[in-house]
Nucleic acid binder design. Structure first.
Lengths: 211, 211
DNA sequence: GTCTATATGTAGATAGAC
DNA sequence: GTCTATCTACATATAGAC
């Protein structure tokens, strides 16, 4: 049974995805990239934090860029899938917006470091060809939110005088920048923050009920 | 009249503040730091953009850090002064908040690059002792806004159920992150953005008038 | 999977001529 | 005020032993 053709974690080449050690190292790198910044973090910093020497990292990864690439792709794939599900299931624009916000905050539990990196380093990484998908992902998010806002305007649940592009940026910045100060072990749960934000947001942009 | 003891721009030592060339070079550096990031910008990049060689920069500045230091201090001093004036002159909390927002957006005309640098690089620069004042400045801003929000709550013009610390971060992020996409030569004036934002913000957090 | 040893590039910064 | 020339340090990455 050992000589099966299926690649188990025992015989899979180390430089491909799936090994537990890789995952550990990626988590360590993600944390450092998020807190110190990608450029300010050296491969020696990562190796030190992992208790190995810098050269040993190259047994697992091609380069520092490959590491951040994997971290970001994992987050963006996950986020895109979840957004699509929200849009499929939401019965109306107001629910859709609320759920998109709540779901973005929820992502902070799982992808806190990746979100911070996406926020802080996109401007730099987008200059490199291999990270073109970051620009595409940002455009995808924008299209999704703007469509929901416009649908809501047409349906009369969002103010007609709202500049949807501006409102989108407003919501996006509000949600994502939370990662800069959010503390996963603090008093405020991501759910509580989401509730407070959605409340401020909706009572600002929702058309008041006609009496 | 030439042999006066007063330092004119003719005889002032080049490495002190005031010369026009310094100001030009600082503006060029600020633009690069803002768009590419502080670490990603090399002194050679700055020199290239200025049409000189990298060594020549050191006739004007001690180091790359000194350059960003000057850029940030100029912005923060200006901003602090303006905030104090707003607070002195605003007759009530709602006006104070509105004017603080409007004034922050107005700062984007004069200090766009510095604001972006302050936003993007503070986390890294704060690790260095010489930039301790960045942490202090951020705390000062926070205290100012929170005081106004609390005053407004006590006066009954802001919702009593508002989490002021959360609302502050909400406003701060909303305002400052605009610099990431604000285009000084675009259709939207900073004043128009401010109006739209203040509207969304206030109709969200202002207590509705009792009929 | 990690270590030893090292190649290679490039960054920030300096000294002195013009 | 800028250039020429160069120093020094450190970053990413590699090759092969264990």
């Amino acid at each position: 049974m050992v000589s099966t053709k299926r690649l188990s974690s025992r015989n899979r080449p180390a430089r491909e995805s799936g090994s537990e050690r890789r995952a550990e190292l990626l988590a360590i790198a993600a944390e450092l990239f998020a807190t110190r910044g990608f450029l300010a973090t050296t491969v020696r910093d990562i190796a030190d934090a992992a208790g190995i020497l810098s050269g040993s990292l190259y047994h697992h990864f091609d380069s520092k860029e490959s590491m951040v690439d994997e971290i970001l792709r994992a987050f963006l794939d996950d986020q895109r899938r979840t957004n699509e599900q929200v849009l499929r299931e939401a019965p109306d624009p107001r629910t859709a917006i609320t759920e998109l916000v709540r779901q973005s905050f929820a992502a902070m539990q799982k992808h806190r470091a990746a979100i911070a990196i996406f926020q802080n380093e996109s401007k730099y990484l987008e200059q490199l060809e291999r990270f073109d998908y970051l620009t595409q992902a940002a455009n995808d998010f924008e299209r999704t939110w703007i469509r929901v806002l416009q649908d809501g305007q047409r349906a009369g649940v969002f103010r007609a005088d709202l500049n949807v592009k501006l409102a989108y940026r407003f919501i996006r910045d509000m949600v994502w920048t939370t990662v800069h100060w959010y503390n996963p072990r603090g008093k405020l749960t991501s759910s509580a923050i989401a509730d407070q934000y959605v409340k401020i947001l909706c009572e600002g942009i929702a058309e008041p009920e006609k009496p």
